[in-house]
Design a protein around this nucleic acid. Structure first.
Length: 826
DNA sequence: GTCGCTGGA
């Protein structure tokens, strides 16, 4: 069986090892020829040698063990989708599915035969590229390996404007700001818009990319006098991301010819450029949410525009609910909800059939191509498609490929580089491979924005970061396998899991749009048209249904919303989730037995943290270790992106990282990192020496400084102490993290939650933990989070003493559970 | 003996 040199390939092997219990040398896989699997030859081989490869979903441990009942239907949906992608979904169902697969294969084989016989593969295009006839090039020029895309169909176009204006820099500079403003599509709707604003309290604006709504609508309102009057009211516009808020504000300040921070300003975490003169304020949605805490009716605003509402981020969603709530008493407040087409109806219904104003966008058309058949291996298909594009499409025009994660990106980059070397000088134009994901160090991220060299085409391998957060110029081709990695929280287990799921229609359309920014583009979808229309969900599951709610619930409670079960959410979270959060808040002492907020709860809600963390912070005052706890808290939030190990220096990096290890556990190791960085005077060089991400530590420092300020504001003493007894730190941590305690199982190989429940999930110490190798194996642990990846891993663990559990957990654990502690010890 | 998609306060 040939194998594909991808991260998936490697992981798949590992998976097979587990299941079939025979080992294979990983080295072998790397040197193997990476031919695509679905070739006619392969298909003709005896069945036994051609087994559909277990794919990503299969490597993910079966979710079904953990999901709530109501989630099962969506799991089934995924299974259906996977089957069409020649995928099996769960380890447990593997065997009894084998027969289905054989049947399925047979059908596919027959279909493939028909296609081979009837389809002319576009050899004409290839002839243009003059290459020596050599075996080496088989990889690209074997017709059978071509990915078959359906012909372009008109109805599958993402329609663009008929005559889009090509940005011509010199030309653009000559046009005055006023002319630019008037050239935006939104300009024609100015009076329509103002009229609608006059008549309605809530207005839904559907404005596609490039319409100019974000920069223009607040200005129109300002010009029409919405921010004037005796009360000095202002116009607020929220954005889901910091960069958007700051860059749009900068642009609008230019257009209005005022200094940023005066009439036009922005406000994002750690950075406030607004003043009492500010009349148009751009802010992140999370920021406006925090403003509710001090100004629960948002009295200083006359208009609030919620931009990019279709993204349905957690903060946006809560904002919408709160706005709906205050509109009943604030009749003078106007609300604009700007969304893409997809959700407009839903928002309109939510706000009592609010009017919808449509503003066309300005974008070039993008032609959509689908594969004729499901792709068995989308990585391979994507690579093949890259070369198809590179060899048949003229320059300029860069390629953007959407992948699910860092590992996938890295392995694909490797395979691509190898193929490029094989092809060598025979390629008429060079192919430059670049990648982008959030965890990539900044200097490497910047590379994708460097201009493309002559006779070169860029291929950018990206995660979802390129879907909305980062815009890359010069992209004409998008390759979209149609998958995304998603974080799903399971409240019953209090466990996160990262799963690869099919994208929604909204998401794949957004991705396609990335090809139409500089000119007409093409999008190659590595799935069938049928599955687009029949299998993909219309929208991505809103975040509110996928996250730990305790922080949100505490916020709502502190705003005086007590009946959470009947609260008017746009999409209501499962009542069980809400109750789980309420139970936790009760055990933390944030609410009383009647469910109303306590003094402590109010105190905790002042911090932008998970309630469990803010509880630790509050407790630490008693032990005079506030600063240490604040440092640990700030580090915990960023710990996943703290260390990095470059491929060529993995061993030395690991050694450096191990130098921070504390025998007490990861919380103390993190404290070490922070303290040593501080001793180096926050130096970047120190970070490089220790293979620590500077970017992350800067963020940690920002969070830390903010928490210190908040403590001072709330009269919490943050004095530095000379030396701290670790016991005090442990006590502070357990006061918030008592639910996250595990004990070693009888067999001594796994851990079990101390809180007994129906589902006793075995947990494992994450191998990156400083106590992973500690002997004797610690009996009791406190963990920061439980994440399901290849196993149920506890990330950031601390050794904890039985006495402390009895001291801080007696209200949470039953006498039997506490008694079992002593049994464990024997 | 692993590994994490993206945002936000």
């Amino acid at each position: 069986m040939s194998s594909i040199q991808t991260g998936r390939g490697k992981r798949r092997r590992k998976f097979e090892d587990e299941v079939d219990s025979h080992s294979e040398n990983e080295e072998e896989i790397v040197v193997e020829d990476h031919k695509p699997e679905l070739t006619p030859d392969k298909l003709k081989e005896p069945k036994d040698t051609y087994i559909p490869q277990p794919q990503k979903q299969q490597e993910q441990p079966s979710r079904s063990k953990y999901i709530d009942e109501e989630d099962i239907s969506s799991n089934d949906k995924r299974r259906k989708f996977d089957l069409l992608h020649q995928k099996d979904t769960s380890t447990t169902s593997r065997n009894h599915k084998r027969n289905d697969h054989n049947q399925w294969e047979l059908e596919q084989y027959q279909k493939a035969q028909q296609i081979m016989n009837t389809t002319k593969i576009t050899k004409d295009d290839l002839d243009k590229v003059n290459l020596p006839d050599n075996d080496k090039y088989e990889y690209v020029f074997d017709d059978s390996q071509y990915v078959n895309f359906n012909e372009i169909e008109e109805d599958d176009e993402l329609k663009g404007d008929d005559q889009p204006q090509k940005p011509d820099l010199i030309e653009k500079e000559r046009i005055s700001i006023a002319e630019v403003r008037q050239s935006l599509p939104v300009y024609k709707f100015r009076s329509h818009f103002l009229e609608a604003m006059d008549k309605n309290q809530v207005l839904i604006v559907v404005g596609e990319t490039g319409s100019g709504k974000t920069t223009q609508l607040p200005q129109y309102l300002y010009e029409a006098g919405y921010s004037q009057g005796d009360k000095n009211l202002i116009i607020g516009c929220t954005q889901p991301r910091r960069v958007a808020a700051t860059s749009v504000a900068t642009r609008v300040a230019q257009e209005m010819n005022v200094k940023l921070g005066k009439e036009v300003g922005y406000s994002v975490r750690f950075d406030d450029k607004s003043s009492k003169d500010t009349v148009i304020k751009y802010l992140t949605d999370g920021m406006l949410l925090r403003e509710f805490l001090t100004d629960s009716k948002l009295l200083k605003y006359s208009v609030i525009m919620i931009d990019e509402a279709h993204e349905r981020t957690l903060s946006t969603e809560i904002l919408l609910s709160l706005l709906k709530d205050i509109l009943t008493t604030r009749h003078d407040l106007k609300v604009i909800i700007a969304s893409a087409t997809i959700n407009a109806e839903k928002f309109s219904n939510y706000f009592h059939q609010a009017s919808i104003l449509n503003i066309p966008g300005r974008r070039f058309p993008v032609k959509i191509h689908y594969t004729k058949n499901p792709e068995a291996n989308y990585i391979q298909a994507a690579i093949t498609t890259i070369f198809q594009i590179h060899l048949t499409q003229p320059l300029p025009g860069d390629i953007l490929v959407f992948l699910t994660g860092q590992e996938e990106i890295e392995s694909m980059e490797e395979s691509l580089q190898e193929s490029i070397i094989k092809l060598g000088s025979s390629l008429e134009n060079h192919l430059q491979v670049l990648s982008i994901y959030s965890n990539l160090p900044i200097d490497l991220q910047k590379k994708i924005f460097e201009p493309t060299l002559p006779h070169t085409r860029k291929v950018i391998l990206a995660t979802n970061i390129a879907e909305t957060s980062i815009t890359i110029d010069g992209i004409s081709y998008v390759i979209d396998p149609g998958y995304v990695k998603q974080n799903v929280y399971n409240p019953t287990q209090a466990m996160e899991s990262l799963v690869v799921v099919p994208c929604s229609k909204a998401s794949v359309d957004q991705r396609a749009g990335r090809a139409g920014r500089i000119g007409p583009g093409k999008c190659f979808r590595l799935f069938t048209k049928w599955s687009y229309y029949n299998e993909l969900d219309a929208n991505t599951t809103p975040e509110i249904l996928r996250v730990n709610l305790s922080s949100v619930i505490l916020l709502l409670l502190s705003l005086g919303i007590n009946d959470l079960i009947n609260f008017d959410f746009l999409d209501k979270p499962n009542s069980k989730h809400i109750i789980k959060s309420l139970e936790l808040l009760y055990s933390l002492g944030c609410i009383n037995s009647k469910g109303s907020l306590t003094k402590l709860g109010l105190k905790l809600s002042k911090f932008p943290l998970d309630p469990m963390l803010s509880k630790c912070l509050i407790t630490s005052e008693k032990f005079n270790c506030v600063l240490e706890i604040i440092t640990i808290i700030s580090m915990l939030g960023e710990s996943s992106t703290l260390f990095y190990r470059p491929k060529d220096k993995q061993e030395i990096a690991s050694k450096k990282h191990a130098s921070f290890d504390s025998p007490l556990g990861d919380h103390f190791s993190l404290l070490n990192v922070s303290q040593q960085w501080e001793n180096s005077d926050f130096s970047n060089q120190w970070c490089q020496e220790y293979f620590v991400q500077y970017k992350t530590l800067r963020r940690v420092k920002n969070v830390r400084d903010q928490l210190i300020k908040l403590c001072q504001r709330n009269k919490i003493n943050v004095n530095e102490t000379i030396s701290i007894n670790p016991l005090y730190i442990q006590k502070s941590l357990i006061s918030g993290y008592f639910p996250n305690i595990v004990k070693l199982s009888m067999m001594g190989d796994t851990y079990k939650k101390l809180k007994s429940s129906n589902v006793a999930t075995p947990c494992y110490i994450h191998p990156s933990s400083s106590i992973f190798k500690i002997k004797p194996i610690p009996k009791l642990l406190l963990y920061h989070e439980l994440v399901l990846t290849s196993k149920e891993y506890m990330r950031n663990c601390m050794i904890i003493d039985e006495k402390l559990i009895k001291e801080y957990g007696s209200h949470y654990y039953s006498p039997q559970e506490l008694e079992s502690l002593s049994k464990t010890k024997k």
